[in-house]
Simulated assay, not measured.
Amino acid sequence: MRVVVAEDGDLIRAGLLALLEGFEDVEVVGVAADLPGLLAAVEAHAPDVVLTDVRMPPGHGDEGIRAARTLRRSHPDLGVLVLTQYADAQYALDLVDDGSDGRGYLLKERVGDAAQLVESLRTVAAGGSVVDETVVEMLVSAGRKRPGSPLSRLTPRELEVLGLVAGGLSNQAIAEQLVVTDRAVEKHVSSVLTKLELPQDTQTHRRVAAALVYLSEIGAPSRAATPGPRR
């Protein structure tokens, strides 16, 4: 697995490199400290996956997220794992706004578990999705503790619909696959969003948030059940 690492902090970058060197199947082929350097490293080294910080030069804003969007267009099969100290649900939503396949969002505190980090890289490189459990909790929290899994609130049909949503299908595509009406799918999606008690935001972001919940608890949907990647 060929990896490009983008991190502007010298100590953190050195720590990541030392950690990844401990895995025989991982090869760091490029290193960058800013957004232009990251994009250049991808062009020069053709990695399987990028491990990047969210905030780095030149603006120390959302460079890692913007890099993921750019790479979605220029290198659609390239995985991007964002590693950050910010438990920011909006960053996670923005990361997967154009599709959750091959995208991951983890907090830097997970670096203490080298095996988890590398497994997350493998998952994202293979086209799967990884979302930090802390961020998922932020997305589904309604100001109170929830007993059990939030998915347990859903009916079998709602869970099936949510799985297809997480796979990137539109309501029309879901209706065609389940042989039901578009209106029936709309009702199921609306019920799912209500039962998961997602933050009141745009319909698009609530839909992505629901997909994040599913991906965190169930894992990436089967590719056989979805059409081609949304690219």
Rank of each mutant, 00 (worst) to 15 (best):
R66D: 06
V82H: 00
V49H: 01
L121I: 06
Q116H: 04
D48S: 11
L117T: 00
Q116E: 05
L117I: 04
Y86T: 11
H45E: 11
V26G: 11
A33K: 13
D94Q: 00
E63Y: 04
P36Y: 14
L83R: 08
H75G: 01
F23N: 10
E43R: 15
V118W: 04
V42K: 03
Y91Q: 06
V50D: 00
E109V: 10
L78K: 09
G15R: 09
V124L: 11
G104S: 05
T52V: 05
V26P: 07
L71Q: 04
L16M: 13
P58H: 08
D48V: 03
G64E: 12
L78Q: 05
L83K: 07
G99C: 05
E109R: 15
D77F: 07
V82F: 00
L117H: 00
T70N: 01
R110P: 01
A92S: 13
A18P: 01
L19N: 10
A46V: 09
A46N: 14
E119S: 05
G79N: 04
A67K: 11
L81D: 11
A44P: 13
R73Q: 05
G64T: 07
D62L: 12
V42A: 10
L39W: 14
Q90M: 13
A18K: 05
D62A: 07
R66C: 03
E21G: 15
V82P: 00
D98P: 00
E63L: 11
Y105A: 07
G64H: 12
G61L: 07
D62C: 02
K108L: 09
E43W: 13
E63P: 08
G104V: 02
L106I: 12
P47W: 05
V29P: 10
H75D: 03
E119P: 02
E43P: 07
G102K: 02
E24G: 15
Y86L: 15
G61F: 03
S100T: 08
V124T: 03
D113F: 11
Y105L: 09
G59R: 08
R66W: 11
S120L: 04
L93F: 08
Y91G: 06
R13L: 15
L38E: 13
L93N: 09
L71G: 06
L35S: 06
I65H: 08
P76I: 05
A40D: 15
L39Q: 06
K108M: 06
D101K: 05
A114V: 06
G104Q: 09
P36Q: 12
A40I: 09
L38T: 09
D62Q: 03
G104P: 04
Y105W: 09
M56T: 09
Y105M: 11
Q90A: 12
Q85I: 13
P47C: 05
E27H: 13
V49L: 06
D48Q: 02
R110E: 10
E63H: 05
Q116V: 02
K108P: 04
P76R: 11
A68I: 04
Q90I: 15
D98N: 08
V29I: 10
L38H: 12
T123S: 09
E21W: 07
E119D: 06
S120N: 07
A33G: 14
P57W: 10
A32H: 10
R103S: 07
A40Q: 15
H45K: 14
